[in-house]
Amino acid sequence: MNRTTAYAANPGLALPGQPAAPAPEACAELPAPVVRDLRDRGGRSPHALLFGPRDLAVITGLPGSGKSTLMRRTVRGLRIDSQDTRDRWDRRMPRSVPYALYRPFVRLSHYAGLRRALRSGEGVVVHDCGTQAWVRAWLAREARRRGGTLHLLLLDVAPGEALAGQRERGRGVSRYAFLRHRTASTRLLRAVTDGALPGGCTSAVLLDRAAADTLRRIAFTG
């Protein structure tokens, strides 16, 4: 594994790509995974993350860690956020109808929107709660099919900060759900820190709150 560190001397950080090739060749010549740890830099970290034109990027972290805020503020191009889908449904539904009743329709709508975005062939940034490993597997397959690569952006935020973020936005998850997210996120963070990226991922970027706040742009080149 190639582990590299980026400093703020770089206004933008370009993530490694995978040359397009027929499926058998691509599987045989995958580049070594790269982990870029931007934590504990005190804000001295890149202002931009740049990906190839056919790449996909997935942002993961605890509920309340700031994934949706980061996406709204920085993504230049297609972004698919389940929170956006829920907000659209919330605006249409009567306040007397509990979210649990229409949650399945929100999820179907979200994944349908993701499928449409992937079919566009453009680079896409996707919100991932960290517990849906099958989504990352789907994205990895799609990235290979289009001749791009899959990149993981992992927000490393303490549980207390994430819970405060939920209170700030006035919407949270149950204690059981949060513990489940926390277990999955801790396992993923430990694996990535050790250089074991999820299947199909070419690179991972570890961000703490300061590094996330420093970012101004997540974009696709070309």
Rank of each mutant, 00 (worst) to 15 (best):
L154F: 07
R72A: 11
W89V: 06
L118W: 01
E161D: 14
R167T: 09
L215C: 07
L179P: 11
A162E: 06
L197I: 11
C201M: 13
D40N: 15
Y7V: 10
W134I: 09
R167Q: 14
D213Y: 04
G64N: 01
T186V: 08
L163P: 11
L150G: 05
A137C: 11
A191T: 03
Q166A: 05
F220P: 05
A137G: 10
F220I: 00
C201R: 04
G121R: 02
G66F: 01
R216T: 15
G165K: 06
R88S: 11
R187H: 12
G170A: 12
G12L: 03
A133M: 10
V34N: 02
S65P: 12
E122H: 15
L108M: 12
A158T: 15
D194P: 14
D40W: 10
L13H: 08
L154K: 08
I80F: 02
S185E: 03
Q166W: 09
M93H: 13
R73V: 01
G147M: 05
T214L: 04
A20I: 11
L206S: 12
A57R: 05
A184D: 04
R175H: 14
R187G: 13
A140T: 09
L150S: 06
S174G: 13
G42H: 04
A162S: 14
L78V: 14
R167L: 09
R169K: 14
R146P: 06
T4L: 11
L118F: 02
S65K: 03
W138L: 12
T4V: 15
P24R: 02
S185A: 12
E161I: 05
W134C: 07
A212T: 12
A196M: 12
A191S: 15
G165M: 03
R103K: 14
Q132N: 13
L206T: 07
A26N: 04
L163D: 08
G42Y: 01
S45L: 00
A9Y: 05
A204G: 09
V75T: 09
P24S: 04
S45I: 01
R136G: 04
L153D: 00
M93N: 03
L78G: 08
G147W: 00
R169Q: 06
G199N: 14
R169E: 03
R119D: 11
A219K: 06
A9W: 10
A100L: 10
R116V: 02
A177C: 11
F220Y: 12
S82E: 03
L50C: 08
L118K: 06
G147P: 09
D37F: 00
D84T: 11
T183Y: 05
Q83E: 15
V173Y: 06
A9S: 15
P198N: 03
H151D: 02
L78E: 14
R187N: 06
T5F: 07
L154R: 13
G148V: 00
W134D: 09
F220C: 02
G43I: 00
D37I: 02
R36L: 10
E168A: 15
Y111V: 08
V58E: 02
H181Y: 09
G165S: 08
G165P: 10
P98Q: 03
I218D: 02
R72F: 03
G77A: 07
S203M: 07
A137V: 12
T214F: 01
P31T: 03
A177G: 09
L179H: 15
P46W: 01
L114P: 11
A177M: 12
H151I: 01
R95P: 08
V126T: 07
G200V: 07
R88Q: 13
V192K: 01
A117E: 02
A28V: 00
V124I: 10
T193M: 10
S185I: 01
